[in-house]
Structures are given as C-alpha cells and as structure tokens.
Amino acid sequence: MTVYSLLFYLLSLLTLAATAMAVTRRHMVHAVLYLVLSFFGTALLFYLLGAPLLAALEVIIYAGAIMVLFLFIIMMIRVEKEDDRFFPFLQWWPALLISGGFLAGLLALSREDLVRQPGMTVAQALPQVFGIHLFRDHWLAIEIASLLLLIALVGVLHLSRRRRADAIEEAP
C-alpha cells in the first residue's frame, strides 16, 4: 500500500463521513458546513486522481460559490424548524432499498475481486495541457456551457424580479 493509496482511502473516508453527516443534519446550516468539508475532501481526491485544475475549480465553485449561495438563501428565508423534517419514517425503507440496489448494481458491474486488482497508474493533467485540450476538442461544448450560464442568469433575474402582487404580500 503506497502513500497515494493510503491518502486515497483516508480522504474517501473523510468525504463519505462528512457527506453522511451532511445529509442527516436537521439544521441546514450544519448540513451545508459538513458538505463544504465533503467537497474539500472531493477536491483533494481530484488532485490525487490527477486533475489539479478541477480540484481548484471544485474548491472555488462548489465549496466557494455554491455553498455560500446555499448559506445566503438559508439565512434569507429563515425556515421554521417544524418544516425541516424527514420524510415519513414509513417510507424510509424504499429509499434505503433503492440506494442499496444502486450500490449492489454498481458493485455487480465491476464483478471482479475488489481487493486484488491492479492499481491505476499515477498521472496528472497539467492545467495548460488540459486547457489546450479543452479549447481544441471541446470548444463547441464550452460555448454551449457558456450559453447555458447566460440562460441561467437571465432566468434567475426573471424569477427574482418582484412582481407587484408579491410586493403587496410582503409589505406588512
């Protein structure tokens, strides 16, 4: 077991534990903070798996922008505790069943001995090489992605525009 592998397992454990904590917290701010930890772990995993640029982006976009956005919204709308509850307990079991089914399916797909497998070779995609690759072979997708962001921007602006009816409702 090399240092790489050791690090990988440690980070995976950290990520999984943080995520598990996140999805079960009742207080949403706690959930978000755990999730930030989870994303940090994922980012380190990315780095380990040879994607330094993506690791940086993961931290910046997921842990930075998206989670902060969540925090903003949570603080903005102040949901009462009562509303924040789990799904009726009776229906937990189908969820567990399905999650387990997925897990089983994925494990079955590998259908191999999980322990004695050859490890992957270590490699790293340098940011500049990755960038050149991206803009040469995926330029159209990049453009579409930028268009998507633009559409999202317009959509959010439209959605958050206060209409007169709302303004009256909100003016106590």
């Binding site: 090399t2 790489y4 592998s5 990988f8 397992y9 995976s12 990520t15 999984l16 995520t19 598990a20 996140a22 999805v23 949403m28 959930a31 994922t42 995993l45 798996l49 969540f70 919204i73 949570i74 949901v79 509303d83 924040d84 509850r85 789990f86 799904f87 229906q91 937990w92 969820a95 567990l96 399905i98 999650s99 387990g100 997925f102 897990l103 994925l106 494990l107 590998s110 191999e112 999980l114 497998q117 050859p118 490890g119 992957m120 070779t121 270590v122």
Partner: peptide, 30 residues
C-alpha cells in the same frame, strides 16, 4: 495507486447518500 473500482465505489456511495437525501428530506433546499 488504488484500483479503478475502489474510486467507483466511493463515487457510488456518495451518489447513494445524495439520493437518500433527495428522497427523504422534506425541504426543498436539502
């Protein structure tokens, strides 16, 4: 380095947790 399937396993576990969260929380933000 670790085998490919191990990282897939981690991804699958994460996915399952996300799915669990999606299906059981009675809160749109969650």
């Amino acid at each position: 380095m670790v085998p490919f399937s191990h990282s897939l396993l981690v991804a699958a576990l994460l996915f399952g947790m996300g799915l669990f969260c999606l299906l059981t929380r009675r809160n749109l933000i969650m």
